[in-house]
Every structure is written in structure tokens, then in C-alpha cells.
């Protein structure tokens, strides 16, 4: 996984609450067998009309935001399904950081498996970032977000931060605990043989 340290880029505001996973990537695009190529379908139903033409008013269709690397949004971002296609679509579009006041849990977890930083800030700060001129800089080691004349500190659990900064392979980490897993399984066979 690609490590995440600092990122400077355009921040696109999509300031609505409860952006759900069906909105991020609708069902018809879940039929893929690979993790890539979903960027063009990101937010499909509010980005294109029924004939597949771009809706000019949608934020990611506007010239200034077509290359956005940061997404600003409202509370409970990523609610709904467990589809990892949601972070895959964001990543494939080029978005590596979503800033919102809160996130749904499964989406939040899925981000870390894909090198995306789901970053929590109060709505008022997000409003200010949305109104700021120029790019936004996210500094994960320092846990700050800054833009012209603005700087906010954000909180993140150290283990989460470490996963992103080092680009850790979580499966390899768990496999390093193999002796503990084997010991657990031996005990489990005795204690709950029906499992």
C-alpha cells in the first residue's frame, strides 16, 4: 500500500450530510472483478445525467475541481454498505483524503486498507476550508490541515496513523501473530468444539 505522509491539492466541497455508499458508487459498478477503474463512475448518479452526459453543476465536473485530491463533506460520510468499491472509486479518481465531521465505521476502516485518510474536523472548519483560496495541505505526521491563512489540527489514533504513514501490510502484521493464533485455535477446539 502506498504510504500517506503529506498531500497538497485541490479540495472539492460536497457539503451534504450522510453521503452514502450508494451515492459514492452505485450498485451497477459493483460487478467488477478488480479494484481499479472505478474513478469514472464515482458519484455517477449526481455526476452524469441518464444519458451519461456530465452535469456541469456537479462539483467534480467543474474545471477547478476535476483534479481534486481532497473531498470536503458533511457528517456521517460513507454510511451504508460495506462495499470497498467506495474507497476504490475515490482513490481511482485521485482523492486520497476525505475531510468530514464524522464517518461511518466500515467505510472508515476500508479507507485505511487503501491508503486514504478519512480526516475528522468540525463542520465550521470544513466550511472555512471550502471557502479558502488555493490548495489544501494535509500533513499526516504533524496532524494538521492548512490552507491560505488557515491551519487546523486533527486527531487520529496512533495505530491508524502508523498504518497510513508506513503503508503497512495488515495481513503480514497479523500473520506475524501466528503462534498466538495457533494457541487460540488449540484452546478453542477444547472449549467450544462445536465451533
Amino acid at each position: 500500500m502506498k504510504p500517506f505522509t503529506t498531500l497538497t491539492g485541490t479540495a472539492a466541497p460536497l457539503l451534504r450530510a450522510n453521503v452514502d455508499t450508494d451515492l459514492i458508487i452505485p450498485k451497477q459498478f459493483l460487478k467488477t472483478l478488480v479494484r481499479t477503474g472505478l474513478g469514472r463512475h464515482l458519484f455517477s448518479e449526481i455526476r452524469y445525467d441518464a444519458e451519461g452526459r456530465e452535469l456541469p453543476e456537479f462539483i467534480l465536473n467543474q474545471p477547478a475541481f476535476r483534479g481534486a485530491e481532497v473531498l470536503l463533506s458533511g457528517p456521517n460520510f460513507g454510511c451504508g454498505s460495506s462495499r470497498e468499491h467506495a474507497p476504490w472509486a475515490l482513490l481511482d479518481f485521485g482523492i486520497r483524503c476525505v475531510i468530514a465531521p464524522s464517518f461511518a465505521e466500515i467505510f472508515f476502516n476500508n479507507c485505511f486498507a487503501n491508503g486514504i485518510l478519512p480526516l475528522a474536523l468540525p463542520m465550521a472548519a470544513i466550511q472555512q476550508l471550502a471557502e479558502a483560496k488555493g490548495p489544501v495541505t494535509v500533513d499526516l505526521p504533524e496532524q494538521t490541515v492548512s490552507a491560505a491563512g488557515l491551519c487546523f489540527r486533527f486527531e487520529l489514533e496512533p495505530a491508524r496513523k502508523n498504518t497510513l504513514v508506513q503503508g503497512l501490510d495488515e495481513i503480514a502484521r497479523s500473520l506475524a501473530c501466528l503462534p498466538a493464533i495457533e494457541a487460540y485455535e488449540a484452546n478453542r477446539t477444547q472449549a467450544t468444539p462445536w465451533l
Binding site: R35, S81, S82, R83, E84, P87, I106, N109, N110, A113, N114, E170, I171, S174, L175, C177, I181, E185
Partner: peptide, 15 residues
């Protein structure tokens, strides 16, 4: 519920 990376994680490690 879990994401696909976690599905892979459980398949490989049972944890």
C-alpha cells in the same frame, strides 16, 4: 460487516 480487504484478511489469518 467488513470490506473486501478485511475479507482477504480473514481468509488469510482467520483474524
Amino acid at each position: 460487516g467488513i470490506g473486501t480487504s478485511e475479507v482477504e484478511h480473514v481468509m488469510a489469518t482467520q483474524t
